[in-house]
């Protein structure tokens, strides 16, 4: 049984696959995928996660809304959230961090960076 459970919220299957591919290199992670913010929230309500990766620009519910809702949930107040996005402007980063995100990764993504951030936030 893997000790850490990670939720990946991303509408692009290519990106999702790339993030999963990167995180599979870290032993001890169970990876769960969600297509958008709403799907992510459903999965969060069903089981307990230790780390969340989310995109910002997604249909139905964007990543920032998801971060805000997750941070208002007492059960997920301290769960680390990482934003993965194309939005590279400083104000976007600051907005995401102010909402409660723990890290901010800009695309094009480097799998090594995803692995480093996951290990750091999970204290591995």
């Amino acid at each position: 049984m893997s000790p850490y459970k990670v939720l990946i919220v991303e509408d692009s299957p290519t990106m999702r696959q790339l993030i999963v591919f990167a995180l599979k290199r870290v032993r001890g992670l169970t990876l769960v995928e969600a297509n958008d913010g709403v799907d992510g929230l459903k999965k969060l309500s069903g089981e307990k996660f230790d780390l969340i990766f989310t995109d910002i620009n997604m249909p139905i519910m964007d990543g920032l809304k998801l971060v805000s809702l997750v941070r208002n949930d007492p059960g997920y107040k301290s769960v680390p959230i990482v934003i993965i996005t194309t939005e590279g402007a400083n104000e976007d980063r600051e907005r995401a961090l102010a909402l409660g995100a723990n890290d901010y990764i800009t695309k094009p993504i480097q799998t090594a960076r995803i692995v480093d951030v996951a290990k750091r936030l999970l204290n591995m």
Binding site: S12, P13, T14, Q17, F21, T86, K107, P108, I109
Partner: peptide
């Protein structure tokens, strides 16, 4: 992943969407 995704469908619109995603994300 780019290669895998490109050949994961035979739907023309989906193929264009995947190419778009690769250009943006990768």
């Amino acid at each position: 992943i780019a290669s895998y995704q490109l050949h994961s469908t035979l739907d023309f619109k989906e193929v264009l969407q995947i190419i778009t995603e690769i250009i943006i994300n990768l």
